[in-house]
Design a protein around this nucleic acid. Structure first.
Lengths: 130, 130
DNA sequence: GCTTTATATAACCAGAAGGTCATGGAACCC
DNA sequence: GGGTTCCATGACCTTCTGGTTATATAAAGC
């Protein structure tokens, strides 16, 4: 069972990704970056926390590959890098069958989508729902 | 954007879930439990680690709600509890658009599926691009 | 009842995590 | 060139983590 987009990442990378996601401040930072890049001070603003603390969080996110650093004058704007999130999601997809009621229907739909991506002009017939 | 099955969990629960997943031993334990319940000694067997260390890992998983404890004579078999995995996946789904090439097609399909589950004979309305 | 099996718990330890304050350094502004 | 802004880094502290060994508890077997 290999869901779309899943290639097994190195265990260490998953370690770093999940560890980075285990902190609410860091998740909030990622949420913020989902709406576009932002400078360190912009990222720090919502939190009742010193700027060095935010810099530490950013370093954790960066070492996990979840963000990258740009440069604009004195600013070092951060950007979201979604690849590790995709890997983490991929790992979790293995367990989808354990909570998804209609897992098989969903899986069929995903397979269908994949098939249509591969040959775009193919008929749009749907797989039967089991 | 609310993917299938997503209800925002308490932040603390996501903390605990992601923290639990950040360790390769614990992920391996979950992988093992995905193929059925297992006793502590069965779970410990593959690892070059003492039994108390495994018990500690199990406690972390249990406090995150990822496993539950049964009883069978002296054994205390563990079972996978997937709800927190669903919550974690739900959080990650927010970011799917950042790595998924055909995010829109997938999203449409998921919406479609949801609609068909709710009212099986209804027309297929599509979401507008954001 | 004593022994064995299965698991939990306590005490301990090293290192990592997450915060603080103070300082350093680079790029802009006047 | 001197101040200001933005960010990084160092030194420090406390708490959490992940492991150890040794011991306790609980049920089963003989």
């Amino acid at each position: 069972m290999e869901p779309i987009g899943y290639r097994t990442p190195s265990p260490g990378r998953l370690d770093a990704t999940f560890a980075a996601l285990a902190d609410p401040t860091r998740r909030a930072i990622l949420d913020r970056l989902a709406s576009g890049e932002a400078s360190v001070s912009e990222l720090a603003e919502p939190f009742a926390m010193s700027q060095p603390a935010i810099s530490k969080h950013l370093k954790v996110l960066e070492r996990a590959g979840l963000i990258s650093r740009g440069r604009d004058a004195q600013r070092r704007p951060r950007r979201l890098e979604a690849a590790p999130l995709a890997e983490a999601t991929g790992w979790l997809e293995h367990y989808r069958q354990f909570w998804e009621e209609n897992y098989q229907a969903l899986d069929a739909l995903l397979e269908d989508l994949k098939a249509r991506e591969a040959r775009p002009s193919t008929s749009r017939k749907r797989k039967k729902q089991p």
